[in-house]
């Protein structure tokens, strides 16, 4: 009897979690810091390379992450097709200080930076192409 109750509870929890994850996954949100007086920004020194002139798509990936591959393809394609936009991939495991500073909890996490390096948008999970393009248009 206990087992049946535990099973029922676990299945309900799994369905609820799955629906929450599905709704949130890849959704691009405006970061709170973007509106703050001291916005959070990334400099070339943080990323080991120059930023994009107009915007940068910084994505954190790790080896143990299936959607990271799809994110890389998406972000690279969009950057190639947009002038002054640079795609920068950061390996989360070898940049743990940065991961802690930005409170990155999962990979892939995508940050959309404006030309000054200010983090304007953020998404966790594989984002939709149209949303990344829209976010870029807002930021540039």
């Amino acid at each position: 009897m206990t087992g049946a109750i535990v099973l029922g509870t676990a299945l309900c929890a799994a369905v609820a979690l799955g629906m929450v994850f599905r709704a949130r996954d890849g959704r691009i949100r405006a970061t709170e810091s973007a509106a703050a007086e001291e916005p959070q920004r990334l400099a070339p020194v943080d990323l080991g390379g120059p930023l994009g002139e107009r915007a940068s798509l910084v994505h954190f990936s790790s080896a143990f992450c299936a959607p990271c591959r799809a994110t890389r393809v998406l972000v690279d394609t969009i950057a190639e097709q947009s002038q002054g936009v640079r795609a920068i991939e950061v390996d989360a495991e070898s940049n743990l200080d940065l991961v802690r500073r930005l409170d990155i909890r999962r990979t892939p996490t995508l940050l959309v930076l404006d030309g000054q390096g200010v983090i304007r948008r953020r998404a966790t999970g594989l984002p939709k192409r149209s949303e990344v393009v829209a976010a870029l248009a807002d930021v540039v």
Binding site: A10, L17, S62
Partner: peptide, 28 residues
């Protein structure tokens, strides 16, 4: 068992791999 079942169910039905996502938090 309940936690393992939730993770397996999420993978089977929704295609989410919870185990994979724990990894970064673990490393952090």
């Amino acid at each position: 068992v309940a936690f393992a079942l939730i993770a397996a169910f999420l993978n089977a039905v929704f295609g989410f791999c919870l185990g994979c996502q724990v990894y970064l938090m673990f490393r952090r």
